[in-house]
């Protein structure tokens, strides 16, 4: 017991909580959640057909992967997200940096990009299906449309926030415009770009599920829609858990990427 824990309250006003308390609190809320779930299903308070017990959901998840080839669906979904996301980044990163660096470029593209942001991507599904049929193309297109305009805007804004002094320092060291953009503005904004990508990847998952639920025979979303037809609520919930787990996994991967790419942002002191 440290001496200052003597008078410490559990609910301290605006006082940071320690690691231990944070960990216990995080576990606690989930314990409560599952406890209610288990209680509700085991006492018959809810219809078992609509709300399967958590242990059943986890057993089904295991089965799906081991016996029913769910891994294939998961890989297809991951491939779609990463493929469409990579294409979106390939356009958004250079364009966003240029728009943030050159007001003239912004003046050209900003009116176009910001208009598209107000068009909900799912509203394109019918026309995408007509244009591209039911293959991979409409799904990739939906994800692409859903992500790219926000990504461009975020990257542009971050680029504008690169401090003027950095640009001016480079200019007075003799750098030309392209050198300033490539050697100063881009590396300065890169950590923020990776953060923006991390945020938008989460959004790409959302659109993936929409695409797969509406029009697909493969992927996690399609599996969930099939399960609905056979009243397999446990499989639907499995799908949700897997999507959540993948989202979390990719988020952690991006966080790790960020730490690995930008060691200089870590404070040693």
């Amino acid at each position: 017991m440290s001496p200052d824990s003597r008078s410490k309250r559990f609910f301290q006003l605006r006082h940071p909580v320690g690691r231990r308390q944070r960990f216990l609190s995080a576990i606690g809320i989930w314990v409560v959640f599952f406890a209610i779930w288990v209680f509700a299903t085991s006492t018959g308070m809810v219809n078992e057909l609509l709300v399967p017990a958590p242990q059943k959901v986890f057993a089904t998840t295991y089965q799906l992967f081991i016996e029913r080839g769910f891994t294939g669906d998961v890989l297809i979904s991951i491939g779609r997200v990463l493929g469409a996301f990579a294409m979106a980044c390939a356009v958004a990163v250079p364009l966003g940096v240029l728009m943030g660096s050159f007001p003239a470029v912004e003046a050209i593209f900003a009116p176009f990009v910001s208009a598209w942001r107000y068009l909900p991507a799912p509203s394109f599904i019918p026309i995408l299906l007509m244009w591209f049929g039911t293959g991979e193309a409409p799904k990739l297109a939906l994800l692409f449309i859903g992500v790219i305009f926000f990504l461009i805007t975020l990257i542009m804004d971050h680029t504008k926030n690169v401090r003027e002094e950095l640009v001016e320092t480079a200019l007075t060291l003799g750098a030309g415009r392209s050198t300033v953009v490539m050697k100063v503005v881009f590396p300065a904004v890169l950590p923020d770009i990776v953060v923006a990508m991390r945020q938008m990847l989460a959004m790409a998952w959302t659109y993936l599920v929409i695409a797969e639920i509406v029009a697909s025979t493969t992927g996690i979303g399609a599996m969930m829609m099939r399960a609905r037809r056979f009243l397999k609520t446990d499989e639907i919930l499995s799908g949700i858990i897997v999507i959540g787990a993948l989202g979390l996994l990719f988020d952690l991967a991006f966080a790790a990427l960020h730490r690995w790419m930008f060691p200089y942002l870590r404070k040693k002191r």
Binding site: R163, V184, P187, F262
Partner: peptide, 8 residues
């Protein structure tokens, strides 16, 4: 006056 070191 502001720090202008290239942090990367």
């Amino acid at each position: 006056q502001a720090y202008t070191s290239f942090d990367w």
